[in-house]
Design a protein around this nucleic acid. Structure first.
Lengths: 195, 195
DNA sequence: CGAAAATTTGACATGACTCAACTGGAGTGG
DNA sequence: CCACTCCAGTTGAGTCATGTCAAATTTTCG
């Protein structure tokens, strides 16, 4: 029953028989993750890809000055992992952490490949996932080069409307690439201008 | 004979028999590209992936203000395409243009998939290429968020040592994400500080 | 409740952009 | 071979976006 969301999400892109759905669902491990707990760690291979059933997670890297940079947020119904590490099974560059107490469904790389054999349609679904990961990281690079912080904040609000008020502003600042102080000033200015 | 470089580059990562090498080589089309000519265009599917035999190319996108942002340079022995479009065969977001008169070897997606069937080892080689594309775009995103323009310039110099003096500074500025004027000032300051 | 963390605010510093003027090749046509 | 034009690059003055640091305030959570 807890896997209903996953199947629902999959069937937005591909159609599965009852047997296939059950086989797929059987491979996922449901896990509770406490706030601030990591489910994937820099330096270790990302064994799993995670589908968020409740709560919210983030993937981020830490630079040599200790500053964190957020690659992705994952609210309910989103997937998250270090895609590079998951595909190649080489050590990850990213950490994946629960921002709030969360429940996730994990699928290991081995089980995924096994499912690809048995349910080839799935391969298409995950290929699209990987492509989207490439596109979005490229798009964010271009946004960071061409847009102001205010425009990037507005894109964030459109991309993650469901979590704006649920996560610390500090994390939003880390995502759009400004200091928390500056984000705070931008927001108070936006408020004033909207009266 | 012109394909010797390609085979040499492939065999750095995988080993091929003589027959396999010849089969692979037979699928590439050698093309001369004049300076400023595009081999892939935004909006059209990227049919090919290109291996550079001579000269230098760049992939870039154009933002809504008409400014160009360079994703990648491709000097001799590098691969270049819109990886997303090439994989999915959906319309590309990027243009790929020759910076200098160049010679490239093109491999179509169809021929590539055909080769994957006949020479499965190749799949590994190209999978690594795709992973690297994901990693490098992610890394540049993080660099853009955490580094100053001077540091990004220094990374550019390390990444593309062979072309620093061969391409217009304007393009380097587009790559690291600053105005040409500002790059010029940075460089003159670097010179002065080195006496 | 109390400590720690997040947010706000202000003064100030600075990185990076804009615009405009100037310089110096690299073609091009006569 | 010259004169002309046209970019690319340089330089400077002024401006704007964003960062830094510190202090005050609020929120969160144990």
């Amino acid at each position: 029953m807890t896997c209903a969301n996953i199947i629902a999400s999959l069937t937005k892109h591909i159609s599965l028989t009852k047997e296939e759905s059950e086989l797929v669902a059987s491979k996922f491990r449901i896990v509770q993750v406490k706030r601030k707990k990591l489910i994937m760690k820099e330096g270790q291979a990302a064994r799993d890809v995670a589908f968020v059933l409740s709560g919210c997670l983030r993937s981020y890297s830490v630079d040599e000055n200790g500053f964190e940079h957020i690659l992705q947020f994952a609210p309910v119904d989103w997937w998250i992992t270090d895609m590079y590490s998951f595909i190649s099974q080489k050590p990850a560059f990213l950490n994946v952490e629960a921002i709030t107490d969360s429940e996730v469904a994990l699928l290991s790389r081995a089980d995924q490949l096994d499912l690809f054999d048995k349910v080839p349609k799935l391969e298409r679904y995950f290929r699209i996932l990987t492509e989207n990961s490439l596109v979005s990281s490229r798009q964010r690079l271009i946004d960071n080069m061409s847009l102001t912080a205010k425009q990037r904040y507005s894109i964030f609000c459109n991309t993650y409307p469901s979590i704006i008020n649920d996560i610390p502003q500090k994390l939003i600042a880390e995502y759009i690439g400004v200091t928390p102080e500056f984000l705070s000033k931008m927001r108070s200015e936006l408020l004033r201008s909207k009266k």
